[in-house]
Structure formats: structure tokens, C-alpha cells
């Protein structure tokens, strides 16, 4: 648990942080299970970037929670100055502003807060207000720092919450629990990552989406390895693929009822001795893989 070598491995930001993203492609393969259990075993901080449905805190149950609101800008039209020229609506790439016959209408949920409308307005009729779209929470699990972003229900844009969360990461090693898929949410999480763990399962969807996740991390030129969760001894499709692609398998977690029972009661699966051993092996592998890959 001690002597964690990643801190010395350095990172792209050069500020004593090593950020390892955990992603999967397919949902439900066990990103949160791997991230939370690995955090506990390695002593790395846990960062939940799946802001649309963050669930890592269910297992880690951190204490002393501090909260901070996440706000985004939106334009406010001063109708006494506005001449209805429509330039703001024309420049908006997200269809957030529309010029009607009477006024400029704002669809605030489409606004990306880019301020282009403010730049083109010749009448200086636009100012910017702020609205809350989510929250950042930070708490403690033993010595670990646990952080998560929460996007408010009904808000379509998760990226501002993810960015805010990742801009203020603690020093040391951080495990970043990403959203499923390979969408903007995952891409913006990977922008802060120094390495990645791809979690998958032996199923057609698991493999299909793993391939997409591999493409994504390769386009970021990140060192990465694969963890096979819910492993079934008779199915080696993931191993076959990884061998062909020359991808390191960091660990294999067996599919067992007792693990599912522990998980479904909100406990960590490292409470089971057999699983604890597996996670310790994965941790050992990570220490070997990331330092030399990072340079």
C-alpha cells in the first residue's frame, strides 16, 4: 500500500500528479468497481467523472463532504440597446439564440458559454449572467481524497462540470472514473489523463466497445492496459483480441455470485480475500507498466 512509485513517474502537467483514467466503451463493465477497489488498494485518490450518474461514493462513502457549485455563462439581452440585427443568432454555432420578429430568444440549455454573441454585438446589448448546472463534491475516505461531479437533472451538457472537476485535482495519483462510451464526456476526461485502464467484459458488446475505447486512447497516445471483468473461463475473445493488438492485460476478475452479492450490498469487493489478491496483482502490474510507458 505504501511506496507507491507513480508519484515519481511525473506527468504531462508536471505538478506532481499522475492521472489514470478508467474507461470502458460499454457501460456496466465495472469501471466504478475497478476504480473504487483499486483506489483503496493503491491509496490513489478517487475522482468520479461520470457526472450524469456518479456512483462511486455509494461504495466509498466519503466523510466531511465539501460542496462547490458549477456555473456556466449565458447571454442576457438588453432590449433597450438591441436593434434586432440578428448577428448574435447568426454567429451562434449551437442554435442557442434566435431572432424572432419581436426579440432575441435564448435557449439556455443549448448555450456553450462561448461568448461569440457578445463579440459580434455592435450595440453592446449583451452581458453575461451565470447559472448553476451542477456541483463538485470532495470528501475523505481514510487518507484518500474522493471527488465527484454531479450534473443537475435535466441539464444536457456535462463537459463544464467535468472540466471544473479535473482542473483542481489533488496532487499524487488520481484514478479518474470516466463516463461510459467514447463521447465528449470521456474525451474531456482523457485530456487530463496520463494513462488509461480499459475495463471490459467477455461479450460481443464488451469487445466491440473496447475496440472503440482502444482507438480513442491511442489517438491520445496514452499508455494503457486492459482489465477483463466478469471473466468466464470458457470465453477468451478479449484475450485473443488483446494478443493480436499487442495490448497488455493488467488483470482478470472472475464472475462470481459472491462478488455480485458484496457489490449489491454497497460494499467493496476487496473485502473478499480472493478478490483483494487480484486487485493487489493489478496494482503491482500498474506500477510496472506506467512508469516506463510514461517517458
Amino acid at each position: 500500500m505504501q511506496g507507491w512509485a507513480w508519484e515519481q513517474a511525473g506527468d504531462s502537467e508536471g505538478e506532481g500528479r499522475l492521472n489514470i483514467a478508467i474507461l470502458s466503451g460499454k457501460g456496466g463493465t465495472g469501471k466504478t468497481t475497478i476504480s473504487t477497489n483499486l483506489s483503496v488498494i493503491t491509496g490513489a485518490n478517487y475522482i468520479d467523472c461520470d457526472v450524469e450518474e456518479p456512483n462511486g461514493f455509494i461504495f466509498l462513502k466519503p466523510s466531511q463532504i465539501k460542496r462547490e457549485e458549477v456555473k456556466v455563462d449565458y447571454p442576457v439581452v438588453d432590449s433597450s440597446r438591441c436593434t434586432l440585427c440578428g448577428e448574435c443568432a447568426k454567429v451562434c454555432q449551437f442554435n442557442a439564440l434566435v431572432k424572432t420578429k419581436k426579440d432575441i430568444m435564448l435557449f439556455e440549455k443549448l448555450c456553450h458559454g462561448c461568448h461569440a454573441c457578445g463579440i459580434v454585438c455592435k450595440q453592446s446589448a449583451l452581458t453575461f449572467g451565470k447559472r448553476i448546472i451542477g456541483t463538485i463534491e470532495e470528501g475523505q475516505y481514510g487518507n484518500l481524497i474522493c471527488k465527484r461531479g454531479i450534473l443537475n437533472v435535466g441539464e444536457p451538457m456535462a463537459v463544464p462540470v467535468i472540466r471544473r472537476l479535473l482542473k483542481n485535482l489533488p496532487t499524487g495519483t488520481n484514478l479518474i472514473d470516466c463516463a461510459p462510451g467514447t463521447s465528449c464526456n470521456v474525451v474531456s476526461s482523457l485530456q487530463y489523463a496520463d494513462g488509461a485502464i480499459l475495463v471490459t467484459e467477455p461479450s460481443s458488446f464488451g469487445l466491440h466497445d473496447l475496440k472503440m475505447a482502444v482507438q480513442l486512447v491511442r489517438s491520445f497516445n496514452l499508455p494503457f492496459g486492459v482489465v477483463i471483468n466478469k471473466h468466464n473461463i470458457e470465453d477468451d475473445r478479449i484475450q485473443t483480441y488483446c494478443e493480436k493488438e499487442n495490448i497488455e492485460i493488467l488483470g482478470v476478475i472472475p464472475y462470481r455470485r459472491e462478488a455480485a452479492e458484496v457489490y449489491s450490498s454497497g460494499k467493496m469487493i476487496v473485502e473478499l480475500p480472493e478478490y483483494k489478491e487480484i486487485f493487489e496483482e493489478i496494482a503491482e502490474r500498474l506500477r510496472e507498466v506506467f512508469p516506463w510507458n510514461l517517458q
Binding site: A89, F94, N95, A96, V98, K99, T100, K101, L110, P156
Partner: peptide, 19 residues
């Protein structure tokens, strides 16, 4: 123009109609 829009297709279409 709304047809190819990433989001807010109806809004983009409506703006054209209003114009």
C-alpha cells in the same frame, strides 16, 4: 439547415422560417 445540426435542429429550422 436544422437537418445537419448537432443539436437544436428545430430551433435552426424555425430561425430560417422566421427569416
Amino acid at each position: 439547415k436544422g437537418q445537419m445540426s448537432g443539436g437544436g435542429a428545430g430551433i435552426a429550422a424555425a430561425q430560417q422560417i422566421i427569416d
